[in-house]
């Protein structure tokens, strides 16, 4: 028990001594597989996020149907703790359509009740500035106040282990994905509606190398009748039939592979969804198929 919390606190404080290392040539958090005209995720992760370059500073983020409620936590110039509230809709900016952005005034609230005291309504004071929070992947963002330097934001992973699976190509910590997941396909229809399909199983890691990682969703009808339809893998060019790999031959890409029933197409067509590294989260894995607009989201059961 204590080691988990110790690990969390270490992570919370870690960025200070990690920063110089990362600044000296770490691969950072490239949006590998991203396309220019749309984000490849539906919603960013609701979580406690930390600023990579500012230990002890971060954001509490809750997203509900495209609306974000955020709390910035940090410190004043004298070192006292500080928080600001901000809320706003997530928008796809015209100048960066591959991202999701919230721009909102910070709300400064003071003179409320102290810990354990009787309630008194706080004062809402003039805004100290405008926050801009921009997500390029579901689990990677930048945060800036007014024209200040953008900070790199990443969510904490508290419930499972994690590892830098592709350390030469990304600093992203891939969470341990082993567990029960349901995969949901949102398929656009000709009439403008959506059709929803799902399948469920145990996601199991089958191999991990420095340049390759692979997971399969093991489904079953009976203990003796198990099969795999959905796979997630990170690898160098896989030579997917009929799919132009839009990325460099020098960098591994992650893909979700699943069978989808598309309207006016033969039943059961296999689609390959590009998955930017930081779309692979501890409780959600999200992807969009650029050619068809099919959204594929995986939800982890009994986790959050």
């Amino acid at each position: 028990m204590k080691w988990i919390f110790g690990l969390l606190l270490a992570l919370w404080l870690a960025p200070l001594w990690l920063t110089p290392v990362l600044a000296q040539g770490g691969p950072g958090y490239p949006c590998q597989g991203c396309v220019e005209d749309r984000p490849l995720f539906t919603m960013p992760s609701s979580a406690l996020w930390y600023a990579l370059e500012r230990p002890g500073t971060g954001l509490s983020i809750t997203v509900q149907d495209g609306f974000l409620v955020g709390m910035y936590y940090g410190f004043t110039p004298t070192g006292a703790p500080l928080w600001y509230l901000f809320t706003g809709p997530l928008e796809q900016p015209e100048d960066a359509p591959s991202k999701m952005r919230v721009r909102a005034n910070l709300q400064r609230v003071e003179n409320g009740p102290c810990l354990g005291c009787g309630y008194q309504a706080p004062d809402f004071l003039p805004s100290p500035g405008e926050a801009t929070l921009e997500f390029d992947q579901a689990n990677h963002a930048t945060f800036a106040i007014d024209d200040g330097e953008p900070l790199t934001m990443l969510p904490f992973i508290a419930g499972v282990g994690y590892a830098r699976l592709l350390p030469s190509y990304t600093d992203y910590n891939f969470p341990d994905l082993n567990g029960t997941w349901v995969a949901v396909q949102e398929v656009p229809q000709a009439d403008g509606n959506w059709r929803y399909d799902s399948h469920i199983g145990e996601l199991r890691s089958s191999s991990k190398l420095d340049r390759y990682a692979n997971w399969n969703l093991l489904e079953s009808w009976t203990p003796l009748d198990q099969y795999v339809i959905l796979g997630l893998y990170c690898a160098f060019n896989r030579g997917i039939p009929g799919v132009d790999d839009p990325h460099s031959h020098d960098v591994p890409d992650c893909w979700l592979s699943d069978i989808v029933d598309l309207p006016d197409r033969p039943l059961g067509e296999r689609l390959y969804f590009p998955v930017p590294y930081a779309n692979i989260g501890a409780s959600r894995i999200s992807a969009v198929h650029p050619q068809t607009g099919v959204r594929l989201t995986m939800y982890r059961l009994e986790y959050d």
Binding site: I4, S60, F156, A158, S283
Partner: peptide, 24 residues
Amino acid sequence: HMYVQNEVMFGMYYGYAPTGAPVW
């Protein structure tokens, strides 16, 4: 703000110091 992952709760309490200053 409570975030629960796999039975582990990681949270922040956002309130005020006795002086009325914000504290977390």
